[in-house]
Amino acid sequence: MGTIALGVRDNVAARFWGSTNGKKAVMAVTGLILFGFVMGHMLGNLQIFEGPVAFNDYAKFLRSVPLGLWLARIVLLTSVVLHVTASVQLVLRKRRARPVAYASKESIASTYASRTMYWSGPIILAFVIYHLLQFTFGVTGVPDYQEGEVYRNVVSGFGQPAIAIWYIVSMLLLCLHLRHGVWSMFQTLGVNHPRYTPILRHGATLFAVVVAIGFISIPVSVLFGWVS
């Protein structure tokens, strides 16, 4: 009568990755890394308000330590791959876990941000790819892309309203994604306390909004001609 003990995969790492909890832990850790990057990137970008020289120097500085740059890129790329793979697998699992949908289903407690993670994520990913093509590789979105002329490229790129709006919308989605993701990673990693969790949740919202405002300030400034 079904009381046969099963030997689950013996490899510890495989078993960890094989469980939803393990995948979520991986998503939390990689999410934390990506959040750290986003914060740093946003603060770096704000140097655009110090003028072309300072901004281009900052970009040059980043390229002056190729080892560090590539290390960061590898860590970030790995994080993205793990984050995305885990989320895709969890979505597939979610589908299998409820094969018959409800005729009527209400959400009564969850935030809009938390329910939209599964599509804010892919859109942000699409944005990141476009963003890299635009500013790192100069393939598209900047009419007269010039390697190393970062300030010029930004002004030129955001000078086109459609591209600026696409950027702004993506940053708003990033804001939503972080609003849930930043506190959720603590929960996933096992940090929850009746006193501190509410602070964490508010903190996550605050950081998400700060990140979004920080990023959005740039295309807005370009569009309004404050940065040119």
Binding site: G18, N21, A109, S110, H180
Partner: peptide, 19 residues
């Protein structure tokens, strides 16, 4: 491990359960 084996989905910390 058992909860996973049973085919339950993963938790996304959204809080519908506790509500």
């Amino acid at each position: 491990a058992q909860a996973n084996l049973e085919g339950f989905g993963g938790c996304t910390n959204i809080g519908e359960c506790t509500a």
